[in-house]
């Protein structure tokens, strides 16, 4: 009901009388008044004049369904959004419900108290500064194809961020960098049986309006935000919707064609790693190699002292000393 009232206020440039809303929705004027107060609490600025009724002055900078849906063009992703002021981690929560929820459900939080990166690393996610969300999918794919969805995610986010006219690169396979610093991380977690994916949770963390002081000293060296890089305050709602729109486009297309090449091409063309020296860290070994290519399966092709190898797994970090920095 709250959403319906909000939609009525949104669609009007002038004051809407309580009587009119009451007629449209079939609820009492007292009930409307209660909902309006609730909206005000959430940060909506609503002007109310006894004679004229209500007028929406401004909406808060929040990523609730009501705020994102006007920009959504998706067929199913984000049609249901679970929105939280604060959560431990959107991925942790998404995983806990992923088996028994709708395909395309999105979890969004304004703040993560235990934002996670890979292998238990923390991800700084301060309140209302970024986009911290998880998409739950039930793709009809074998688990061996799941890694291609990381390419879909990275390439769709790349395409979305292109409009900011900054130097964006994709660091194989799941990070997005601006001017060499991390702006976005993707953490995909899967629940699968031998031949079937039960559910897939794609966690996306984007530093949008994060400011320098939000990062600690260590992080300022390796992380940045759209605001820091563009000097502008970014509309998070629109950006969230655009990412979901682009992602779904790529995702639906890939599921029907099973052809990953167009997306691989984006990742290759804008790779932060190709022709660079990287340090490869595996759980049991560490070495330096030059990245030559990304193959058609999405694997990183490296030249390890004259020996060409393919990498499906393992940590890769740019090696400044060898790259002349």
């Amino acid at each position: 009901m709250k959403s319906k009232i909000l939609n009525i206020l949104r669609s009007s440039d002038t004051y809407v009388s309580g009587e009119e809303i009451s007629k449209l929705l079939g609820i009492s004027r007292a009930a409307i008044w209660k909902h309006i107060n609730q909206l005000k609490k959430e940060g909506y600025q609503i002007d109310s004049l006894t004679k004229n009724g209500y007028k929406l002055i401004s909406s808060p900078d929040i990523l609730s369904f009501d705020e994102i849906s006007p920009f959504l063009k998706t067929k199913f992703i984000g049609h249901d959004i679970l929105y939280y002021e604060s959560i431990d981690s959107t991925n942790t929560f998404a995983k806990s419900i992923s088996q028994n929820c709708k395909d395309g459900l999105v979890i969004i939080a304004e703040e993560q108290t235990k934002g996670r990166g890979r292998l238990g690393r923390t991800w700084v996610s301060p309140k209302r500064k970024g986009i911290w969300m998880s998409i739950i999918l039930h793709p009809n794919l074998p688990p061996s194809e799941a890694h291609k969805l990381t390419i879909i995610t990275a390439s769709s986010i790349y395409n979305t961020l292109c409009k900011f006219n900054v130097d964006i690169k994709i660091k194989w396979p799941n990070d997005i960098l601006i001017n060499g610093k991390k702006i976005c991380g993707i953490l995909t977690e899967m629940n699968a049986e031998l031949n079937h994916i039960n559910s897939l949770v794609i966690g996306i963390g984007i530093n949008v309006n994060t400011e320098v002081e939000d990062f600690n000293e260590e992080l300022t060296k390796i992380a940045t935000s759209l605001r820091i890089e563009t000097g502008k305050f970014i509309d998070r709602k629109k950006l969230t919707a655009e990412i979901l729109n682009n992602f779904e486009d790529f995702y639906i297309d890939y599921l029907s064609t099973k052809d990953i090449r167009p997306y691989l091409e984006i990742v290759r063309k804008n790779s932060a790693l190709i022709n660079k020296y990287v340090e490869i860290i595996k759980p049991n070994e560490k070495y330096i190699a030059k990245v030559v290519d990304i193959d058609d399966d999405g694997q990183l092709v490296i030249d390890n002292d004259g020996k060409i190898e393919k990498l499906l797994s393992g940590e890769v970090s740019l090696h400044n000393m060898y790259n002349g920095k």
Binding site: A146, H147, T150, N174, I186, T188, M190, Q299, S313
Partner: peptide, 11 residues
């Protein structure tokens, strides 16, 4: 089990 940063928890 991890491949290209897809973390697959085996239950």
């Amino acid at each position: 089990i991890e491949a290209m940063k897809i973390m697959n928890e085996i239950e």
